[in-house]
Amino acid sequence: MDFIQFIKIIMPLTLASAAPIISTSLGGLFSERSGVVNIGLEGLMMIGAFTSATVTVLVEPSLGVLSPWVGIIAGIIAGGLFSLIHAYVSINLRADQVISGTAINLLAGGLTIYLCQIIFNQQRTRTFLYGIKKQEIPFLSDIPLIGDAFFSKVHITSFIVILLAIIVWYVVFKTPFGLRLRAVGEHPGAADSMGINVYRMRYIGVILSGLFAGLGGSIMVLSQDIQYTHMSIHGTGFIALAALIFGKWHPIGVLGAGLFFGFSQALGVIAFQVPFLSKLPYEFFWAFPYVLTIIALVVFSGKSAGPRAIGKPYDKGER
């Protein structure tokens, strides 16, 4: 395998595994920027993945090729609705946000399998015929060299997610809404005194996290799996959480962190087939993504840039 071929193989793999991480991580960004820790991203992904797979299977006979897209929209909505539980518990009831998030994860794992049992009479959804397929991106895939590496045999959803990261950056840092969201996460008391409705902003933050995590879960199951099972998400929500911290709660940082995690996983896979690397033992490559992550965290660590009021419930009377 020469270098050009190596790049051609690894880039599409990186994009494929990075997309769900980035999407979910952007969701976490909205929630945490508004001051609500969301450890329930994994569970929200499961809900999104389950819903999109189920809807895809159910509408396939009538909608055909369109069905995964209908599935994705359903998955996004389901993620948003499910996140309302987290929003209500942690904003209105002022419960511990970590515990609420953990409850979301546990609940989602059980609930999705239970619903599969009811709908499909088995502990997983039926296999879908139409998923999100790898494809050539029109025009861009014709660019020499770059076209082959970045725009050929890729999922269109990967580029949608990258575009979303840029939009999120604009929204969070360049609009009044973004300013309010960040203010609520930094100093809710001050924001409140300026007439910003803290509860409303936090609700919006958490619901957006549900929508994005739902999208991440949908992309993951429809592009990588053949059905939703209890293994479909396998910890990606937590990796997204790590990417959020690694990316310092910044959309472009999150984009970079997601691509980095995707790349290191892909490298772990592909290294077996690079002649001089394949002499090393298997275990080396399995540990590889994690070792790279630790190294990167050490190298890039510095002042933590998390929102200051993160994890603290806001009590209006307590000023």
């Binding site: 193989i9 599409p12 595994s17 087939q273």
Partner: peptide
């Protein structure tokens, strides 16, 4: 015969990547 062990029985994304790499070769 080209072989690769995933190190995991429950990671579809990984299986997809290994298969993709093999097919590409």
């Amino acid at each position: 015969v080209i072989d690769q062990y995933a190190g995991d029985f429950g990671n579809p994304g990984l299986g997809q990547q290994i298969a993709s790499t093999m097919y590409d070769q």
